[in-house]
């Protein structure tokens, strides 16, 4: 089962709290998840903490599943950071700003655990 979702990113207090500790596990925990509402998680057959593969036309990334019932159906949220940026849009639409919100994404369950920060960054040398 794949969920067609609209992906946005943004700040959270925990992402902000570990902004200057990006090599630490706390930052990894604060940024390497994808939030959907519980109904969408049920549709995908996953529980919180399971792994999700988020794919867009710009890339893919594995993330932990997290529930947030403040999200409307089909809206996925990833905290700003290296994991979100693996799949967000680089298109600046003629005004300089990349597409950090409103990127069409496909979300499905995966067996791949999220990469820690340094491993994720090493992908850019490949």
């Amino acid at each position: 089962m794949k969920l067609e979702a609209n992906l946005i990113s943004g700040r959270t207090a925990y992402q902000g709290a570990y902004l200057e500790a990006k090599t630490h596990k706390e930052y990894f925990d604060a940024c390497s998840y994808c939030e959907l509402n519980s109904g969408d998680l049920v549709k995908l057959g996953v529980s919180e903490g399971d792994y999700l593969l988020v794919t867009t036309e710009f890339g893919d990334v594995s993330l932990f599943a997290k529930a947030n019932d403040g999200n409307p159906d089909g809206l996925a949220f990833i905290p700003m950071g290296p994991w979100a940026n693996a799949v967000l849009s680089p298109d600046t639409h003629g005004c300089g700003m990349p597409g950090f919100k409103g990127v069409p994404a496909q979300i499905e369950q995966t067996g791949e655990a999220p990469l820690e920060m340094k491993a994720l960054m090493r992908r850019y040398y490949e």
């Binding site: 990006k22 700003m80 940026n85 967000l88 680089p90 990349p98 950090f100 850019y124």
Partner: peptide, 12 residues
């Protein structure tokens, strides 16, 4: 921190 906050094409 561009490494954390720029999209993948910029980082490549």
């Amino acid at each position: 921190d561009a490494g954390a906050h720029f999209p993948q094409d910029s980082l490549k």
